[in-house]
Nucleic acid binder design. Structure first.
Lengths: 167, 167
DNA sequence: TATGAAAATAGCTGAAT
DNA sequence: ATTCAGCTATTTTCATA
């Protein structure tokens, strides 16, 4: 857990923020903006990766450019005895399911689905509904994004943050 | 009419896939795995960025490491006359809202919310519910992720894939 | 335990082919 | 698309506080 040895200070926060804004920025460049040498920045990035704070670096892509033009969230209601673990295994077989989680509220699970178009989505949905432990589904097709920002889960700390310790 | 502008061939697909897996990979490294020179890879990446296929490069972070330990999806039901645009403006004032979209189904909008803890989430939810045009909300707290994969919205092409307009 | 400076290696990028 | 050349960045080593 996080009680030990995670001196996540202000400099780390700024480095993470810089890398979230541009993961291909050079260490020297990042260092220049936060007042550190490139060497020091690299060391801290290496440590943040080793600690699991940074889990990777990825290109963000406009899904429609790759032909994924339809997006939906699907609430899944399971048979009462269906373990979430089963869901996890099944979900792995659907390349269209980009995220899946168990949730509170009416449904047992929520699926984030991408498909080429509504026909494709309908086909995927039929396959999901045919899974043995699925009792019913409620779909929410995404019409438009109100927030296209890249600031997802921002690098700022939460308002009532019990996050960052320091020395 | 396939000669112009954005062919997006198999090599581009592989480059995008490589950058989604590791956005800090060197051009030479990517080139080596797909049989191309680093220079050629760079030119293609530049073009993919200019075309808007690639929209950026970002570090992926474990939210809990930054103190965001609670996650939820909130269905928002609006007053009948509330334009989605209003939602967009409001949403911008909540750093806790990491994504917002209009959707079909019962609700008018779906919000992806991150908070430090459930207390923080409750506070955010109360603020959202106090917005003038919000009639009711249904919250789904995320319990666990069934798919922690980094393969979100995969670089593979959809089954019936036709891709790539731009500008 | 941290940093910064220097040196060697590796990568980036433009021009020519 | 490749090769080459000049420049920049990364990464290791070493010295310092």
């Amino acid at each position: 857990m996080s009680t030990r040895a995670a001196p996540f200070d202000e400099l780390d926060r700024k480095i993470v923020a810089a890398l979230m804004e541009n993961a291909r920025a050079s260490f020297n460049e990042i260092g220049a903006t936060i007042g550190l040498s490139g060497t020091a920045v690299k060391r801290r990035v290496d440590r943040l990766c080793a600690n699991g704070v940074i889990t990777g670096f990825t290109a963000t892509v406009r899904p429609s450019a790759l032909g994924w033009r339809t997006e939906a969230f699907v609430e899944v209601y399971c048979d009462s005895a269906a373990p979430p673990r089963r869901m996890g295994e099944v979900v792995r077989n659907y390349p269209e399911i980009v995220a899946a989680m168990t949730v509170t509220g009416g449904a047992d699970a929520l699926l984030h689905v991408r498909a080429a178009d509504v026909q494709h989505f309908e086909e995927v949905l039929e396959r999901i509904r045919a899974e043995p432990f699925v009792r019913k589904t409620i779909s929410h097709l995404v019409l438009s994004h109100l927030q296209t920002m890249g600031s997802e889960a921002g690098a700022g700390r939460p308002a009532s943050g019990n996050a960052a310790h320091h020395r």
